[in-house]
Design a protein around this nucleic acid. Structure first.
Lengths: 111, 111
DNA sequence: TACTTAAGTATCAAAACGATACTATTGGAG
DNA sequence: CTCCAATAGTATCGTTTTGATACTTAAGTA
């Protein structure tokens, strides 16, 4: 895993930079499993995030082609976000994390 | 995935808090796939990290029972870090991330 | 005219992070 | 006896990220 078979360096740092932001996994999870969301819906879904940060992290995800942004020319404004095909490709990784947590809950440490 | 079948809230925020630090995924990956490492070896393996941050993130991971720390009473000091059983349980998630990247490389966007 | 709503910016304070220097320890060199 | 090497840290301070709050924009409505 440190190298793949073709002797490329392991992509881990690149991957972690793309999804490692403080809120990126939460945003991606919602868009991947729940589908398209408006800006305000994401804000409600992640109440702890600030508007500033949500905007910034979405821009980062958009730049990395994990999330797509569609603006409707309406007033009041309407902007929809959704996971791209690339982004949806992360679904199995999220599922693994989920089942890791579930397994973990069932084997608590002895006090 | 937002809720599991028993109607618990989705653990995503908890999971992401545990592994979401800037360097935690990198540290975990090394300990999970390469096994036990000394402090200095980790530092060499992640050249961009500062000593201060490495210490801090390792302490966080230790507190969350993902990493184990063993101090040897020697001079010069020797401290070994390894992934706990819990930590190793994340291996499938890392493998999924890896194959996501590999797949992704083979379907580049049209310019 | 003023008000409403949604999706942002702008601004400043707080927290996280980075760079660098310093500490503790002790067996061996001189 | 004194000094040094090696490792895993702390301490300190400056920079970058993040958070809290207020402000902006634009078109329809009262």
């Amino acid at each position: 895993m440190q190298d793949d078979t073709s002797s490329n360096p392991c992509p881990a740092p690149l991957v972690f930079a793309m999804i490692g932001g403080k809120w990126k996994l939460s945003i991606l999870q919602i868009l991947i499993f729940d589908g398209t969301k408006r800006f305000g819906e994401l804000r409600k879904a992640i109440p702890e995030i600030t508007q500033t940060m949500l905007t910034k992290q979405l821009r980062d995800l958009e730049r990395d082609c994990l999330v797509e942004r569609v603006v409707y020319a309406e007033v009041p404004p309407k902007v929809e976000y959704s996971a791209t095909e690339d982004g949806v490709g992360l679904m199995p990784a999220f599922k693994e994390m989920h089942s890791w947590w579930e397994t973990r809950k069932r084997s608590p440490k002895a006090p």
